[in-house]
Simulated assay, not measured.
Amino acid sequence: MSHLPETLLAGYRNFMTGRYAAETDRYKSLAREGQSPETLVIACCDSRAAPETIFDSGPGELFVVRNVANLVPPYSPDGEFHSTSAALEFAVQALKVKNIVVMGHGRCGGIRSALDPNSTPLSPGDFIGKWMSLVAPAAETVTSNTMMTQAERQTALERISIRYSIANLRTFPCVKILEQKGRLELFGAWFDISAGELWVMDRETGDFERTSIA
């Protein structure tokens, strides 16, 4: 009896005979010397939008934090458990990343639930509902726009939430100070799962522009 699903074991075997075999020296170096990625990516935990795959990144190149709807909560040192804030702190203070990218994606289930007034909790704890309340004011504004279709509202909130998370990043003193000193840059991106398009946020206007692959 296997202690892991066979699909995972098969993938591991492919990894060992493929990528690991081709990059053995790099893995050994990373194990010996530690990681030093230059970019932190805050992404959604959706299985269809893996940053390492989208950006074709090698081992040690990206420090990735994934949560429902790629949200960043505001700075809140209240003694509670804050996994995203802890990872952010480690990336900025210990790894000293130079870039932070908040990457959302199309057809996000968390965003869809935030837009649905009839959404019911998946459990008594309603952890998703509590988490998505971070964007509740924006969701209410988008929902009230009767001139937009449901798909347009979805895309709008997916992109608004990215700008919201970037604003929340700046509530963290370490991020704000390093950005002001020019030692840290913040970026926003949105990935269209269906078309494979990457849209990047203009840091001055907040508009999203499709990335050319030419």
Rank of each mutant, 00 (worst) to 15 (best):
L169K: 02
P74D: 13
R112K: 14
Q35E: 09
L198Y: 01
M148W: 08
A22V: 03
L198R: 06
E152G: 07
E197V: 05
V72K: 00
G18S: 09
K28Y: 07
V92I: 08
L198I: 11
T143K: 05
N67T: 13
C44H: 07
D207F: 07
S212H: 13
I100H: 12
D126E: 13
T84Y: 09
R159M: 15
G129C: 08
S76A: 12
T149I: 11
A87P: 01
H105K: 07
A86D: 08
A50G: 12
E197H: 14
A151H: 07
K96Q: 10
S57H: 08
I177Q: 10
V68R: 00
F90L: 04
M132V: 10
Y12E: 00
L122K: 09
V135S: 00
W190E: 04
T84V: 15
S2R: 11
P37L: 04
T211G: 04
W199H: 14
A91G: 06
T205V: 03
T143E: 06
Q180N: 14
A138D: 12
E152P: 05
F208I: 02
S2Q: 09
E89T: 13
E52F: 03
M16S: 05
P59K: 03
P37V: 08
E140R: 11
G206Q: 04
S144I: 00
K98E: 07
S133Y: 12
F187W: 15
Q180V: 08
F55C: 13
M148G: 00
A156G: 00
F15Q: 03
R203W: 01
A31T: 04
E33H: 10
G11H: 04
T149R: 08
D46K: 07
A49K: 02
N168C: 10
T53H: 09
N99I: 04
E52H: 14
Q150R: 14
H82A: 05
G34C: 10
S36H: 10
K181S: 07
G58D: 13
S85W: 03
V135I: 13
A114W: 05
Y164W: 14
E23L: 11
G129P: 03
T149N: 10
M16P: 00
G60Q: 11
I100D: 00
V200M: 09
T143R: 12
A189Q: 12
Y75E: 06
M147Y: 05
L134N: 13
Y27P: 15
F191N: 00
A21C: 13
Q150D: 14
E6I: 10
R159Q: 15
S76E: 07
G125N: 11
M148L: 14
N99K: 13
F63S: 08
N118L: 10
F191Y: 15
A151Q: 14
A10C: 05
E38T: 15
A189C: 08
F55P: 15
M148I: 01
S113N: 02
G104K: 02
E179Y: 06
D78G: 02
P5A: 12
L115K: 01
A10V: 09
G110K: 02
L184M: 07
A214L: 11
G79A: 06
V142N: 00
E33T: 10
